[in-house]
Design a protein around this nucleic acid. Structure first.
Length: 477
RNA sequence: CGGGGCAUAGCGCAGUUUGGUUAGCGCGCACGGUUUGGGUCCGUGAGGUCGGCGGUUCAAAUCCGCCUGCCCCGACCA
């Protein structure tokens, strides 16, 4: 077979760039660092959005929309926040042909403007909690960009909640981390490690940042979602106060949490193979593609009729597409849909019609081994079962991959070696400077600190100090 | 912002070293026919300010200068 795609082992980065373009997920825009999300990629994002949104609603959240433009002064109200974002802000200085009195920042995230509004809206403990999410675009002027993984403008959701107590806010923070984990596993077939970010890696302005970290097929880590416990930092910066039951003025406790279009990149890099995308069935824009096969023109009508019948039977049950394109051979279409990662392919030709069956090919198992013949009577049930099977198989495969590339190491030398091949799981008691040193030497960063203490405490892999805190180190996106 | 690479048809490239008349090739695209169980075949055709500006020259895709953009690596980051 000719090469349509750079093999992953040859150049993973190149493979990624090619597949994003060839699978029609996105295209480069005329503006540096920005991307056009094409319909196929956008539909995938819509699926992600639908499944996340469903979970947000189920946990009591409502959607709202806050403006793109933020007065520049807002950003500086929270010291860490401004420091964290200042270098990557896009600033509007002119409007309507005139220089603005105060420049407007294009939101890099909305804590500040939402904090400002919450201060207005929240008066009493009866107003709490406020549980708002917004789906929006944000802009961060990144030095180096990659499609979906890091673009100047990207799409995301950002939840912003305000609570009466610290405990409630922390509970919310963890609830949403769990929502993200559940989404990643059950929709994306993406095994993730939930954990807390180190002081060095946490969100600018947060008291604590929690993350879900996934392993990509090049063994690098990718942060797929974050949930921040903001304490009273923004409440104090924006004066968000309420009167409690005792008529005493209190600052609220806030959280924020987000998942971005980067999730698309995570899915591409966690499941994709040398034939192209491999999409998790529950998120795939098209779950089942039907490729009709005919040899002679006189066969065409019968095959197409049968194919349309199958499409009609599956429609409503799954997201199905019948590929009626003319002039393309079945083999060409097979490869085309494999490139696009469609989980199941139904092949239907004269032989199948004669035998009252179809061939169903699984995207996650390339070639003949992934094909089964299915009697027409069992079409619907088999398709639905297979979609679940593929989901499970993808999850298990990704999990096995991560596990076989995760190393429990005891010494710094071992860590240095381990992060060249995957995740290093270590005991850690170092500080930000120690992390910096590890990064300078290994290019690996502290991805997250696990909630569970080590079963057998020991010495920090770097400082030698006694600890039971477990950390994951890895090279990361 | 530093280092490297690239810029010629929609995409991928050759041609540039050593300047020379009409800038080629593959894929894709359009049309006609043929075909279709793992990227069919034949024919016809459309498509180019050779990234931009300036310079050298009788003559520039080719040599020189400046600029711009993109990709990769690094610093920064979801």
């Amino acid at each position: 077979m000719a090469e349509f795609l750079t093999p992953q082992h040859e150049d993973f980065s190149k493979w990624y760039n090619e597949i994003v373009l060839k699978a029609d997920l996105a295209d480069y825009s005329p503006v540096r660092g920005c991307m056009v999300i094409k319909p196929y990629g956008y539909t995938l994002w819509e699926r992600i959005r639908e499944e996340l949104d469903r979970r947000f609603k189920a946990t009591g959240h409502v959607n709202a929309y806050f403006p793109l433009f933020i007065p520049q002064s807002f950003l500086s109200k929270e010291a860490e926040h401004v420091e964290g974002f200042a270098p990557e802000l896009a600033v509007v200085t002119h409007g309507g042909g005139k220089k603005l009195d105060e420049p407007l920042v294009v939101r890099p995230t909305s804590e500040t403007i939402i904090g400002h509004m919450y201060a207005k809206w929240i008066q009493s403990y009866r107003d709490l909690p406020v549980l708002i999410n917004q789906w929006a675009n944000v802009v961060r002027w990144e030095m180096r960009t990659r499609l979906f993984l890091r673009t100047t403008e990207f799409l995301w959701q950002e939840g912003h909640t305000a609570h009466a107590t610290s405990d409630e806010a922390m509970e919310e923070t963890m609830r949403m981390l769990n929502v993200y984990t559940d989404f990643a596993v059950n929709e994306g077939a993406l095994p993730v490690i939930p954990g807390r970010k180190s002081e060095k890696e946490k969100f600018a302005g947060a008291v604590a940042t929690y993350t879900i970290e996934a392993m990509m097929k090049d063994t690098k880590a990718l942060q797929a979602g974050t949930s921040h416990y903001l304490g009273q930092n923004f409440a104090k910066a924006f004066d968000i106060q309420y009167l409690d039951e005792n008529n005493e003025l209190q600052y609220v406790w806030t959280t924020s949490w987000g998942v971005s279009t980067r999730m698309v990149g995570a899915i591409v890099m966690a499941h994709g193979d040398d034939h192209g995308l491999v999409l998790p069935p529950r998120l795939a824009p098209i779950q089942v593609v039907i490729v009709p096969i005919w040899r002679k023109n006189k066969e065409k009508a019968a095959v197409l009729a049968a194919a349309r019948n199958i499409e009609a039977r599956l429609r409503g049950l799954v997201r199905v597409k019948l590929d009626e394109r003319e002039g393309l051979s079945p083999g060409w279409k097979f490869n085309d849909w494999e490139m696009r990662g469609v989980p199941l392919r139904v092949e239907l030709g004269p032989r199948d019609i004669e035998r009252e069956q179809v061939m169903i090919a699984r995207r996650d198992i390339p070639g003949r081994e992934g094909k089964v013949s299915v009697p027409l009577t069992a079409l619907e049930t088999t398709v639905q079962t297979l979609l679940d099977t593929v989901h499970q198989a993808l999850y298990q495969k990704a999990l096995d991959f991560r596990e076989s590339h995760t190393y429990d190491v005891k010494t710094y030398d071992e860590l240095k070696e381990a992060v060249q091949h995957g995740f290093a799981r270590v005991l850690w008691a170092g500080d930000g400077e120690d992390e910096e040193a590890v990064k300078a030497e290994t290019k690996a960063t502290l991805r997250c600190l696990l909630a569970e203490p080590a079963e057998t405490p020991g010495k920090c892999v770097y400082t030698g100090r006694p600890t039971d805190q477990v950390a994951i180190f890895a090279r990361a996106y």
